[in-house]
């Protein structure tokens, strides 16, 4: 089965069947196929920053690594860690976390081609 790009903004969710797993820009599973794209699911995907999603089969070609998507996720991670700053004066802990997460994603090479 070929990849199908779905533009969530413009897609009328009623009755559209997702035939393959939907992942975010870091390859995390957002919706397990098969499922029907309902208004709530559309809202949730949009809320997770997904603008375009690829619907692809499990037998599809492996995802290629997207460095820009990784950098975007690492920026979000730094934002999530912002409350640690006063307690982590040298920034060692935050640096360690960011580099570890970077390494983990690079090792897995899970990033998809598309951007959100």
């Amino acid at each position: 089965m070929k990849c199908v790009a779905v533009s969530l903004e413009t897609l009328d969710p009623e009755g559209v069947e997702i035939v393959s797993d939907v992942t975010d820009s870091l390859g995390r599973l957002l919706a397990k196929a098969p499922c029907v794209l309902e208004p709530n699911l559309k809202k949730l995907l949009l809320a997770r920053g997904v603008r375009y999603v690829y619907i692809r089969s499990c037998a599809d070609t492996p995802r290629s690594f997207d460095n820009e998507a990784l950098e975007k996720e690492l920026e979000l991670l730094k934002k999530r860690l912002i409350l640690l700053a006063p307690h982590d004066r040298e920034g060692d802990f935050v640096k360690m976390v960011v580099e570890t997460v970077r390494g983990a994603y690079q090792k897995e090479e899970v990033l998809p081609e598309h951007r959100d």
Binding site: D24, R28, A31, V101, G103, A104, K107, V110
Partner: peptide, 14 residues
């Protein structure tokens, strides 16, 4: 952390 990132990839939001 590495193990958590790796294994959480298969957990679906929806």
């Amino acid at each position: 952390l590495q193990e958590c990132v790796r294994r959480s990839l298969g957990i679906s939001l929806i």
